[in-house]
């Protein structure tokens, strides 16, 4: 995915290295290899590769990762502006 890069320096992803227990779950679930574990500590190696899907945060047993997860979809965001976050959907009924 190195060919596909989106806007830099926008992601809300944060890693609290102090709380990390080095389980490697973040590295396993990230679809963009944002994390790498070295000597039982996770490090962010490609921050701008993050698409804020949130997989790492919910799978971190130490709650060392925070990110504002969401759908990176213009249609969805327009709806959330108009109807509010709770009622927004990105396409047809029950779309993703």
């Amino acid at each position: 995915m190195q060919r596909f890069r989106y806007l830099p320096e926008v992601t809300t992803l944060k890693l609290n290295a102090g709380a990390c227990v080095g389980c490697g779950m973040c590295e396993a679930v990230c679809p963009h290899t944002v994390f790498a574990v070295h000597e039982r500590k996770a490090r962010i190696v490609d921050l701008d590769g993050c698409m804020e899907c949130g997989a790492c945060a919910i799978n971190c047993p130490a709650e060392a990762i925070t990110v504002t997860p969401g759908v990176g979809c213009a249609g969805y965001i327009i709806q959330s502006w108009i109807k509010g976050k709770e009622n927004a959907a990105c396409g047809g009924p029950g779309c993703c």
Binding site: M1, L7, T12, H32, G70, G72, C73
Partner: peptide
């Protein structure tokens, strides 16, 4: 599969 909501 790579755009972040904050970016969009």
């Amino acid at each position: 599969p790579f755009t972040s909501p904050t970016g969009v």
